[in-house]
Design a protein around this nucleic acid. Structure first.
Lengths: 150, 150
DNA sequence: CGTTGCCTTGACGCCGGCGTCAATGTCTAA
DNA sequence: TTAGACATTGACGCCGGCGTCAAGGCAACG
């Protein structure tokens, strides 16, 4: 059943498009344990590659490492896909909620910043117009005039 | 011109809704320098409060400390508002771009996660339907059945 | 026999914005 | 006098996901 194609950490890293440092980190976190050969070198097989790819995919989507754990365990349990298990689906849903909340916040902030910008630009336009009027307000500082007083 | 109402760090922090630690941090960053009294205690006046409020407002909007600097310097230069200066407007615009990019990314991720979730749910529905058929696929593991094999 | 190349563990660095001690000083009220 | 409430500087901790360096081991190749 399990593939015999043992590879070492460098090769696995390359094939998954990541680094050996990351792999050791995953192992330290208990996310991707490795077999060892006679020299103490980590040994991985094809199924490890699948687990690792699952991790990487989720990471690229912005999932935290802990959030990938259910997917990895699901795969290790023999399921056809990392998201074949309820726990994985729960993570999906939680992430959707999180994203919705975040997107909402960011849009709100964006609106307010845009409003501030518009207001400030208008104020500056009003100032410029006032400057054209004889007896307009005195110049405010160097930053509004390109370092004249610098 | 400058207000005589000298207060110490604790009071300023309270009035601005922040902490003394933050104020010392801002000073260390050169963002909000303070006068000292005979005992080496920091002394602030009302104008410092205005600067600090500008910083806090922007921070609440998600601006980094360095991004607040133009606003603070603008105020210190005597302008009526922190965003009366071109440099501040530039920060506004940069932030808008940043937010737009971020929001776009998050929406893209949201769509893909939603699609994955839909796909996975459909797959599970198909599995369940298959189980009802005589001679359906064998049960996959404990995670799909509530810990039967646990 | 030396060099290259892969592997090992351990430990510190980074980023941002402070929180949280620790040890010490100063002023004030009872 | 003593306690309490304020202040000071210095320094380490945190979070996440590694990067990067250090010091060493083992194998294969020329």
């Amino acid at each position: 059943m399990s593939n015999v194609g043992g590879m070492r950490i460098g090769e696995l890293a390359k094939r998954a498009g990541t680094t050996t440092r990351a792999l050791r980190y995953y192992e330290a976190r208990g996310l991707l344990p490795a077999q060892r050969d006679g020299n103490g070198h980590r040994t991985y097989d094809e199924s490890d590659l699948r687990l690792l790819r699952q991790i990487r995919t989720l990471q690229d989507f912005g999932f935290g490492l802990e959030e990938t754990r259910p997917f990895v365990e699901c795969l290790r349990a023999g399921h056809p896909a990392g998201d074949s298990c309820p726990a994985s689906l729960a993570v999906y849903r939680a992430k959707l909620d999180e994203l919705d909340g975040l997107i909402g916040q960011l849009r709100s902030v964006r609106e307010q910043v845009a409003a501030q910008l518009a207001r400030a630009e208008e104020a500056r336009a009003a100032l410029a117009a006032g400057a054209e009027v004889p007896g307009g307000p005195e110049p405010v500082c160097e930053m509004t005039h390109g370092g004249v007083f610098e």
